[in-house]
Computed example of a mutant assay.
Amino acid sequence: MAPRACPSWCRAPTTTGPTAVAEACGYDRSTVHLVTLPIAHNWTLTHGMMATFHAGGTLVLAPSADPDVAFPLIAKERVTDTGAVPGVALLWIEATEWLDDDLSSLRPIADGGTKLNPELAKRVEPALGCRLQQAFGMAEGLCGFHRADDPEEIRLVSQGLPVSPLDELRVVDSADQEVAAGEPGELLARGPYTVRGYYRAPEHNARAFTGDGFYRTGDVVRLLPTGHVVFEGRVKDQINRGGDKIACEELENHLLAPPACA
């Protein structure tokens, strides 16, 4: 029997994640990327290590995101690019008041993991002297960044554009019907580096993917007329702490486990 042909959406990717990230972020041989967050996270692997190596740049690893550690490394290695979560961004902003390390080599600082408050976003560029580049992503694949020519009003309120022109996004209601332009709904994603299914999990895959291969991200978003994604919350009862997802039900079960709490 001849093998059954895959639908077009499940064929081999033509654009890999690291390639698309490197192109979207403008990486080249002059890039010196500092990783201060855990390297095992999807974001630091793609945006940090893999995209930097793909572009032929230099990777610098810091043992901590503490500004007393990170700032001297930026100055010594002439770091051009780095990433942070909102809590780290706030710490770095405050640290510029008492540390005088030379941060002038920084071009952008990418911020992701959780949504950056617009009021905090306004403080990044004046304090650190570099461009704010908001970002989004997930372990299942889809990720996005602002581009170098995105205006400030876009960079302060949105979390970026998908990195690959082959990424497909849909924003739908609870009945899987696409919402009106600019309205919030669940984000569905399909593309060359987004997973097609979880390993040996057919029942979960039936819930996590649509029939035509779109992944149900569980994120509530709205799309700006420019296509930029604005994250508004989660469909699932879930806590997002610096990019780590914590199921509320699991947390509640642990809290109720001791007999005195029953």
Results as ranks from 00 to 15, higher is better:
4 R>H: 07
5 A>M: 04
9 W>D: 04
11 R>Y: 06
11 R>E: 14
12 A>L: 11
15 T>M: 10
16 T>P: 07
19 T>P: 06
22 A>E: 03
24 A>P: 05
26 G>K: 00
26 G>E: 04
26 G>R: 02
27 Y>D: 02
29 R>P: 11
30 S>H: 08
30 S>I: 02
31 T>P: 13
31 T>V: 12
32 V>M: 01
35 V>D: 07
37 L>E: 12
39 I>H: 04
42 N>W: 10
47 H>C: 11
50 M>Y: 12
52 T>K: 01
54 H>T: 10
56 G>P: 12
58 T>C: 09
60 V>D: 08
60 V>N: 00
63 P>H: 05
65 A>D: 15
68 D>M: 11
74 I>M: 00
75 A>N: 08
77 E>V: 05
80 T>I: 07
81 D>L: 04
83 G>K: 00
84 A>N: 11
86 P>A: 03
91 L>Q: 14
92 W>I: 00
94 E>N: 14
97 E>P: 06
98 W>F: 14
101 D>T: 04
103 L>Q: 05
104 S>W: 13
104 S>I: 03
108 P>I: 00
109 I>C: 01
111 D>C: 13
111 D>R: 01
112 G>T: 02
113 G>M: 03
115 K>N: 11
116 L>T: 08
116 L>R: 02
122 K>G: 07
125 E>M: 01
125 E>I: 01
129 G>P: 02
131 R>S: 05
131 R>Q: 13
133 Q>A: 07
134 Q>D: 04
135 A>T: 10
139 A>Y: 04
139 A>W: 04
140 E>V: 10
147 R>Q: 05
160 G>K: 00
161 L>D: 01
162 P>N: 03
168 E>L: 12
169 L>F: 15
174 S>H: 12
179 V>E: 09
182 G>N: 05
186 E>C: 09
191 G>Q: 02
193 Y>C: 01
194 T>E: 02
197 G>C: 07
199 Y>W: 14
200 R>Q: 15
201 A>K: 08
203 E>N: 11
210 T>D: 06
212 D>E: 15
213 G>W: 10
216 R>G: 08
216 R>E: 06
222 R>A: 01
224 L>Y: 12
224 L>Q: 10
227 G>S: 12
228 H>T: 09
229 V>E: 00
233 G>R: 13
238 Q>G: 01
241 R>P: 00
245 K>G: 04
246 I>S: 06
246 I>V: 11
246 I>Y: 13
248 C>R: 15
248 C>E: 14
253 N>E: 15
253 N>T: 12
255 L>M: 13
257 A>P: 05
258 P>I: 09
258 P>N: 10
259 P>I: 06
